[in-house]
Simulated scan of single mutants.
Amino acid sequence: MTAVQCVTCGQQGEAITDPIFMGKLEAEIKAKVCKNCWKKWESMRVMVINEYQVNLGEESGRELVKKQMRAFLKLGEPVDTSKLDQNYRPPQ
């Protein structure tokens, strides 16, 4: 088992070995995030997509999910997640 010092949980954890299909970000994620925290993000990603009603077919939707991912994994600047906390529904 390869270990990584995770920036998300702050502990030593198992490294991600499976492909995660994140393009340029993949190397950074694999070097800084443990497998456990990545699995937590995968569950959170579904919630982000549903709560924000993200259209992944649009670049803006993909960027929103990427920003949320970087914030969740502590790889970038924090973003406003209050919409997730309040079960936000966008105006229709």
Score class of each variant (00 low, 15 high):
14 E>K: 12
47 M>F: 06
22 M>Q: 15
13 G>P: 05
40 K>S: 09
39 K>M: 05
89 R>P: 00
34 C>T: 06
20 I>Y: 04
60 S>M: 11
89 R>V: 15
38 W>T: 01
49 I>R: 04
50 N>T: 06
84 L>V: 06
79 V>E: 10
8 T>K: 15
79 V>H: 04
79 V>I: 15
23 G>I: 05
4 V>K: 06
16 I>N: 00
13 G>R: 01
67 K>E: 04
92 Q>V: 11
16 I>D: 00
14 E>P: 00
51 E>C: 10
63 E>N: 11
5 Q>E: 13
83 K>N: 14
18 D>W: 01
12 Q>L: 15
62 R>E: 14
50 N>I: 03
30 K>S: 07
71 A>Q: 05
52 Y>N: 04
30 K>H: 08
53 Q>Y: 02
14 E>S: 13
59 E>M: 11
11 Q>I: 05
45 R>H: 01
23 G>S: 11
36 N>P: 00
1 M>R: 04
24 K>T: 11
88 Y>P: 02
74 K>H: 15
90 P>Y: 04
10 G>W: 11
48 V>T: 08
13 G>S: 10
67 K>T: 02
47 M>D: 12
23 G>A: 02
43 S>R: 10
63 E>V: 13
17 T>V: 12
82 S>E: 14
60 S>L: 02
36 N>M: 08
63 E>F: 01
39 K>E: 08
35 K>V: 03
92 Q>H: 12
56 L>T: 02
31 A>H: 06
30 K>D: 10
10 G>L: 09
13 G>W: 06
79 V>W: 12
15 A>Q: 14
14 E>W: 06
19 P>K: 09
60 S>P: 00
28 E>G: 00
72 F>R: 11
50 N>P: 00
12 Q>P: 02
24 K>I: 12
41 W>M: 04
72 F>H: 05
49 I>W: 05
56 L>D: 13
26 E>A: 09
17 T>Q: 13
6 C>M: 06
52 Y>R: 07
76 G>S: 15
72 F>Y: 15
68 Q>R: 08
69 M>A: 03
23 G>R: 05
3 A>G: 00
48 V>M: 07
55 N>E: 13
79 V>T: 14
59 E>V: 08
33 V>F: 01
8 T>V: 09
5 Q>I: 13
78 P>W: 09
58 E>K: 10
67 K>D: 10
52 Y>V: 01
7 V>R: 07
62 R>C: 03
44 M>V: 04
63 E>R: 10
78 P>G: 08
58 E>Y: 08
52 Y>K: 12
58 E>N: 08
41 W>R: 08
82 S>T: 15
45 R>M: 12
74 K>V: 09
45 R>T: 01
28 E>Q: 15
